[in-house]
């Protein structure tokens, strides 16, 4: 089954962020709690953890992109 990863709301004050670095590449195995990617908001760089266990299938945004809350950022293949 494929699970979609959407951009969480990371700042109480804004819904648009600067996408930082990917910490997992397509094909990498992912555990719940593993850091998937980093996002820069006004005050911090947030490391977003995976809520799923499986394999990262696809990255849907690139480093440096502007992303909005709810945007599809990745897909994870779960067993």
């Amino acid at each position: 089954m494929i699970k979609e990863v959407h951009m969480p709301k990371l700042s109480p004050k804004s819904d648009e962020y600067f996408f930082g670095e990917w910490q997992k590449e397509p094909g990498d195995s992912v555990e719940v709690g593993d850091i998937l990617f980093e996002v820069e908001t006004d005050k911090v760089v947030s490391q977003v953890e995976s809520q799923e266990k499986g394999t990262l299938q696809a990255q849907k945004v690139a480093e440096g992109d502007t992303v909005k809350v709810g945007d599809l950022v990745a897909t994870i293949k779960v067993a």
Binding site: P8, K9, L10, I35, E38, K43, V44, V45, S46, Q47, V48, E49, Q51
Partner: peptide
């Protein structure tokens, strides 16, 4: 300034 974030 890197912080982790558990959305749930």
């Amino acid at each position: 300034l890197k912080v982790t974030y558990d959305q749930k």
